[in-house]
Amino acid sequence: MKKKELVSLGLIALALGFLLAFTYRTANRVERTVPYDRAHELTLELKALAKERADLEAQARDLRAKLAKAKQGYSEAQLALEAEVKEAAALAGAVPLEGPGVRVVVDNPPGTAGGTIFAVRDEDLLKIVNELRAAGAEAISINGQRLVSTSEIRTAGSFINVNLQRITPPYEILAIGDSAALKAALEVKGGIVETLRDWGVRIQVEARQQVKVPALSKPLRFDYARAVETGGKS
């Protein structure tokens, strides 16, 4: 009886010690492990954050697409600007041009040096250019001198100046435009070609599929003229 009690006492002491130590260990792990409620809370937070992250990613994708679109618009605008600059340069004579047109070669009558009254004069060239322009010529050059808005054709001494450059016969006039119309305008009955031929000037007009008009040798520039601001303050 006494022995039995001793055994039970020892057994219970062992069990109690074990339980106490084990609980102590478990309780002291609180700081190192996550309590159940906290885990639940963190799970919810994680879910919320994942959703937020997904939202933000979608937003980023959207913004990236918008950015790409904006960039595309920008490059399109740049292309348009470049095209406009090119066109303006062509109109101003800054670039060589080519297209269908006519080639007119004018030379002094045979046996006459420059200076006789039968020689080709600036007025003759002006009249030819005038006719060509009236017939719709888009670009004209005389002996490699491109005719632009500031170009002059005038006699200086015994020579003719174009763009302040001295040119000598034979005069080769190149014009881009409707070649048939240009040719017809020059060769009309009683027109400039017939008149000049009557004077004995050698003149040939030929329509060409491809005429190349050079660029202005010196770039066009204005020292005094300024564009009037439009659409700005009055």
Partner: peptide, 13 residues
């Protein structure tokens, strides 16, 4: 016996 049981139990735990 009780002290011995406690010590062994705590060591085990």
């Amino acid at each position: 016996l009780v002290i011995l049981g406690l010590v062994v139990g705590i060591a085990l735990g």
